[in-house]
Design a protein around this nucleic acid. Structure first.
Lengths: 209, 209
DNA sequence: CCCCCTATATTGACGCTGGCAACATGAGCC
DNA sequence: GGCTCATGTTGCCAGCGTCAATATAGGGGG
């Protein structure tokens, strides 16, 4: 609660690194209190600045949310890329690694993940957000298309394989975060949990023809 | 803009069927202007009543949204049930019919579908919402478990088959509504569209062992 | 070295929202 | 025929996003 500069006595008029501080506070609020609590004024309060200070850096609320989502997409893409780099060459192993990394990121950053796919509150035209989405899509495509069979398929079937895998893991992540799988998880025997259910779901994927 | 009773001269103090009228106006606003435009006051204005009239019927905004989501879940469950009734007995045909009905509902009611799965703005304890979710889940389970193979699988694999199909169609619907598949759809040749992509995605599903 | 220009931050205001309390109306039941 | 209480209205408050006007100070050009 106390200002960090209380010992020094006076708070500088200029923050120094307000943009990064606002993004950090915004993410903290998002994960702690949910997306509806993430307001411009709340982020400004958390950073210890006046309620219109964020305007200089983000313009409006959509701007702040979009920049935060961009950070999320970059981290998401990096997590996917790291998992694929560690997965080796076996198509089945790569598919499972991608699914684990995708759902793992969503579970580790539920608020951020929800924000990233709440497009009505984001401005897809923002360069930072375009970049972030592009980075994540490249990482995802590297994972998804690696499992295509050697023999070339028609474009529609090729796209369908990638979209099917993406839909499967994204749907699982969304339903899990929304608590929609809780009933099913509780009805499973013994020590089965979300992770083992994901493994079993990934095992149903038909990979490489 | 003019009140409907302008010709009659006076508007009755009591609406008569305000609850249903508010739900209808709320859905219209939701589909026309998006979820962020759906406010208690906007619904009240559209229904031609004062800004606190909705309180008598729904309590607060969460109440209105929850009741509207409940209507959506009931319609969703009915649509799924109707599609399954018309699908016959072939497991593959049933799977495809379920996927078409699921995504078809989402595309026909994008705002309502988004609201139904925006759990942080809903009150899952509301009896009406519980009932609606339950009805939809029963319809969905009838579709998903009908494709289970004759020979019994372990519970985890059984659940995984149902969850995989649900995740696939739900993820596809969410990504499609969010515009996440637009780039891929545009890169497809000729007259391929979302419907044919969905067919190709459903064709990748391994059904009945 | 100093001064000014401009990025950064503040103050104050407006209309919108959800929600509460007090009050008005009238439909239906006894 | 009168009363009760569900239904609807008016008025108010705090919090929100956003804008305009103002204050501050850091850093580059004289």
């Amino acid at each position: 609660m106390d200002e960090e500069t209380a010992v020094a006595g006076t708070r500088p008029y200029h923050h120094g690194n307000l943009r990064a501080a606002l993004l950090a506070e915004a993410e903290r609020i998002l994960e702690r209190d949910g997306i509806q609590a993430l307001t411009l004024r709340a982020a400004a309060r958390a950073a210890g600045v006046s309620h219109t200070a964020p305007k200089n850096h983000f313009g409006d609320l959509t701007g702040l949310l979009s920049e935060l989502a961009a950070v999320g997409f970059h981290r998401f893409g990096a997590a996917l890329a790291a998992a694929m780099a560690a997965a080796g060459d076996d198509p089945r192993a790569r598919t499972k690694a991608m699914g684990r990394a995708y759902v793992g990121f969503a579970r580790a950053n539920p608020g951020l993940f929800a924000l990233m796919f709440r497009s009505e509150r984001l401005d897809a035209q923002r360069p930072a957000l375009r970049d972030g989405i592009d980075a994540a899509r490249r990482a995802l495509r590297a994972a998804a298309f690696a499992r295509a069979p050697v023999k070339t398929l028609p474009p529609l079937e090729m796209a369908a394989q990638a979209v099917a895998l993406w839909s499967l893991v994204h749907g699982f992540a969304v339903l899990l975060l929304d608590g929609r799988l809780d009933g099913m998880l509780k009805s499973l025997p013994g020590d089965e949990n979300a992770a083992s259910l994901l493994e079993a779901v990934l095992a149903t994927v038909r990979v490489g023809e």
